[in-house]
């Protein structure tokens, strides 16, 4: 045990040391080149290791995944588009897509609205209480979905009628004289998926609150005073002066949460493993890969996910270009 801890620290030092020596050597080699060439080559020497990592772990696998998605379960022969058609025809996968769509429709919007609301409320408090309340709401962001699952399993726990209910929700429910409900197994109107989304919101709202409230504080006071002098009420000020000025941040939070939700995995995996009709793309991918041991199906799920992400990618690049131009 001690050895592992020690070797971790050693690895950090060795890793950083080796990287530094590597750059130093690269730098020296490049410096031996005649003057003009030194300036030409050096930038590439500086970015090469980073690009090696990105190429090896994202670009090459992305291309290979596209290939694998047209191959069979152990990648030994081409099967054309069979993986895609099989998936899209299967009722289970359609449900999975539908559930993921629900997450995408509900969670980002709810994160923005609730984060904005909580942030505005907390901003009215004295600085001490503001900081304390924001820390409490922000804190779940620090823990893992597994940790959060140990928390929320307790809220949603179910015992058969007659036994003591140790889950908070069922304790409250039965206190009103009703029969206990196995919440996470209740898929009527996707209720269990919504309960999982509540968990996600518990973890994520702090993030949106911190960013949005910082953006609101960054709105120049002059614009607010000008609006007040013109006789605008608080609601108009919020809707017409503040909101337009924090639009950029809202979009950023929205995009970030949307990407996170599209590939949501751990909350669902840990809480239900996709059972009771709560399956989402991330969990389905994992189970295709490790339970069904079907590389082809797993790869084609990733390809579909990546295609769905491309519009966001285009948006990000455009946004970045516009920002660079404004610099």
């Amino acid at each position: 045990m001690l050895f592992k801890g020690f070797s971790a620290i050693l690895t950090v030092l060795a890793g950083i040391g080796v990287a530094l020596v590597l750059y130093w050597i690269l730098n020296k080699i490049v410096e031996f080149l005649p003057g003009k060439w030194e300036d030409r080559i050096k930038p590439y020497a500086y970015i090469a290791p980073a690009f090696l990592a990105i190429t090896l772990y994202l670009i090459y696998p992305a291309i290979r995944t596209v290939f694998l998605s047209f191959k069979n379960d152990d990648s030994t022969k081409f099967v054309g588009t069979k993986n895609y058609t099989d998936l899209l025809k299967s009722h289970d996968f359609q449900q999975t897509l539908y559930n993921t769509l629900l997450w995408i429709l509900i969670v980002p919007a709810a994160t923005i609205v609730l984060g904005l609301a909580v942030g505005i409320l907390a901003d009215h408090l004295r600085p001490g209480s503001e900081k304390a309340s924001k820390t409490i709401i922000f804190l779940p962001m620090a823990i893992s979905a597994v940790g959060a699952a140990t928390v929320w399993r307790f809220v949603y726990a179910y015992s058969p009628p007659g036994q003591p209910q140790i889950g908070l929700l069922n304790a409250i429910w039965t206190a009103f004289g009703r029969q206990p409900i196995p919440w996470l197994a209740t898929s009527t109107l996707h209720f269990n998926s919504i309960l999982l989304m509540v968990m996600m919101l518990w973890m994520q709202i702090g993030f949106s609150m911190v960013l949005l409230s910082a953006a609101i504080k960054g709105v120049p006071t002059e614009t607010l005073e000008a609006a007040r002098i013109d006789g605008a009420n608080e609601r108009q000020i919020f809707g017409r002066v503040i909101l337009p000025q924090i639009k950029g941040t809202i979009v950023t939070v929205f995009v970030t949460v949307t990407i996170g939700v599209m590939k949501i995995f751990d909350i669902v995996y840990v809480m239900t493993n996709g059972n009771f009709n709560t399956n989402v793309i991330g969990v389905d991918f994992f189970n295709q890969l490790f339970t069904n041991i079907n590389n082809g199906a797993a790869a084609s799920i990733v390809v579909m996910l990546t295609v769905a992400v491309i519009p966001i990618m285009i948006y990000q690049v455009r946004h970045f270009r516009a920002e660079e131009a404004a610099r």
Binding site: Y57, L58, Y60, P61, A62, R64, T65, L68, I259, M262, K263, G282, F285, L289, N295, A298, A299, I301, V302, L305, T306, V309, I312, M313, Q316
Partner: peptide, 11 residues
């Protein structure tokens, strides 16, 4: 924004 899922099978 590329999901790191793309890397899992090949890697």
């Amino acid at each position: 924004v590329i999901p790191n899922y793309v890397a899992f099978v090949p890697i």
